[in-house]
């Protein structure tokens, strides 16, 4: 059969970013006070662009993604800022309105493809359900689109596969199904939360290549959340480095990798093993990221930073342009003294 166009049929608005997050804050009220998980985070993703969001566990990458989707787990809540998806503000929508936006305007890919699919429904049924929910297509038309989707994510013999259950797919194939499901209603934005972490290394490359291909073909914007700089380097257009709930550096991937500005980013890059220079021990950043309830004053990175000065613990550095990247460090803003 002829592959149908997978791309979103929405009118292209070149100027409208797929995602525009500005000044987002997320807090978790707890008995011992309110914990600020995300603090004044801003990021934009253009249509057809992949933004890598990188950072250690607990840096707030996944929370940012969940906040965009409106899937923060109670008691977590957005306490400031605005989120626009395809030009439409979504953080103020009710749960009912959000249900209509999810899937149609934005989709998600989660870490573990083994648990992301309902084991009791065939892959075809789950695809057709999602397609019909958002398009009102007839069963036959939805079935054809499901077939086209499976084809576009590179699943061989899609006609037979539609009738199969998730347990009959391998991990990599399941992640392809998950991607097809996320794309089912032609969203403008996909939040991909560690989409390759649970997969074999050989499969990882296939999945990242697939994401890149779909991004170029359909113009969907992707927020690629990962702690793996390698995945970012291969796949993303721009990268956003997060530390303790804040963005510390953002910019084009090549620039951030080869010319990092923020000491934390420098540490991250130094920690990537290189094939060319054989070293005995890998570089590492001493210490660990502070817990939410014990965040240092000023720049949260200063206790681990080799360049820290008095100013670093006194005031939080803003994110400012340094060349083509943006960095939040006093070093580039008149020194740390």
């Amino acid at each position: 059969m002829m592959a149908q166009p997978i791309a979103a049929s929405k009118e292209p608005e070149a100027a409208t970013p797929a995602l525009d997050v500005s000044g987002l804050s997320v807090e978790f009220p707890s008995r011992r006070g309110t914990l600020l998980a995300i603090d004044d985070v801003s990021m934009q993703i253009a249509p057809g662009e992949i933004l890598g969001v990188v950072g250690e566990s607990g840096a707030g990458k996944s929370i940012t993604g969940l906040a965009v989707l409106g899937l923060l787990e109670s008691p977590g809540r957005i306490s400031g800022g605005a989120i626009h998806v395809g030009g439409r503000r979504v953080d103020t929508l009710s749960e009912k309105e959000l249900t209509k936006v999810r899937g149609r305007e934005m989709g998600a890919i989660f870490q573990d493809p083994l648990t992301a699919l309902n084991p009791l429904f065939t892959v075809g049924k789950q695809l057709v359900e999602t397609i019909r929910l958002h398009s009102g297509m007839s069963k036959e038309a939805a079935n054809d689109r499901a077939l086209a989707l499976l084809q576009s994510v590179g699943i061989p013999a899609p006609r037979e596969r539609l009738r199969q259950y998730p347990h009959q797919f391998s991990g990599g194939m399941r992640q392809r199904v998950v991607i097809a499901l996320a794309l089912a209603a032609g969203p403008r934005l996909i939040i991909a939360d560690e989409p390759t972490t649970a997969l074999d290394v050989s499969i990882q490359a296939q999945i990242t290549a697939l994401l890149r291909k779909l991004c170029d073909e359909t113009g969907v914007g992707i927020m690629l959340v990962t702690h793996d700089m390698g995945v970012i380097a291969e796949t993303a257009d721009r990268v956003c480095v997060m530390y303790s709930g804040r963005v510390v550096e953002s910019g084009p991937v090549a620039e951030v990798i080869h010319n990092p500005q923020h000491p934390y980013t420098k540490g991250l890059m130094a920690a990537i093993p290189s094939l060319h220079d054989r070293v005995e021990t890998l570089a590492q950043i001493d210490g660990s990221m502070p817990r939410l309830n014990a965040r240092p004053t000023g720049c949260a990175f200063h206790p681990r930073c080799p360049h820290a000065g008095p100013k670093c613990s006194a005031a939080t550095p803003p994110l400012v342009s340094v060349g083509v990247t943006r960095s939040a460090c006093w070093l580039q803003q008149g020194g740390t003294q």
Binding site: L69, L71, E95, T99, K100, V101, R102, G103, R104, G107, A108, F110, D112, T115, A116, L117, N118, P119, L120, F121, E129, T130, L133, H134, V178, L181, A182, A184, A185, I191
Partner: peptide, 24 residues
Amino acid sequence: DFIKFARSRGIPARSIHFRHALRN
């Protein structure tokens, strides 16, 4: 996870609860 994923696809709460979750 599959409930979270279903929610991210905009499946309405009624269907999540009575179709996807209850059957499991």
